[in-house]
Amino acid sequence: MITAEQKPMQEIIQYLAPYSKILLVGCNECVTVCAAGGRKEVGLLASALHLNSLKQGKTIDIKEITLERQCDPEYVEELTSYIDAADAVLSMSCGCGVQTIATRFKQAHVYPAVNTKFMGASLSQGVWAERCQGCGDCMLGITAGICPVSRCSKSLLNGPCGGTSNGQCEIGPETDCAWRLIWERLKELGIEGRYEALVDAKDWRPAGGAGPRKIIREDLAL
């Protein structure tokens, strides 16, 4: 999923300072699962913003709504009946959702309430770790299901660097050396011979090196 974390409260308050009618929009997808911008977080942030304005003797009108997906125009369309009544839109989705709203409603002042972090997997409740960088040319088939692009700090493709120490990465003891993990898993699976096969220099154009990426499915596009 795409992971995110709520922005510092004071940054959000600064964004909203000029406005009194806010449309606070959550998203039912990734940010709900990583507890950054679902219905629950929308409620909590709205409550915090109410407390802040009440302390200043002001009232702030906050309309809370959580869409099924903020990155799809058909769901964003549901905001049509609320958008005119709002001075500003505060989105709790990833950057994709914020931009979908800004694209659909040209006149709306749209602000993000979360910082989008990475594509990650849940390790345990409340813990998420980066597992994919969307390089556009998946290598997991030759690296025993462990991604060197996202999990090696240098995205090395042919074994570890000299910075690996006792199986950990030199950036910190809490980070496993991805290539140690790959080697151990290759051995466990009895296919350590694959480690000898050299990987050619990676073409980083599908990873974004050739500019913003797009997928067009002719069979689906109307």
Binding site: L51, L54, K55, G57
Partner: peptide, 13 residues
């Protein structure tokens, strides 16, 4: 509660 301070300030203004 600080929100009551807000009310007092508004009344004063």
């Amino acid at each position: 509660n600080p929100i009551s301070q807000g009310k007092i300030e508004v009344q004063a203004v």
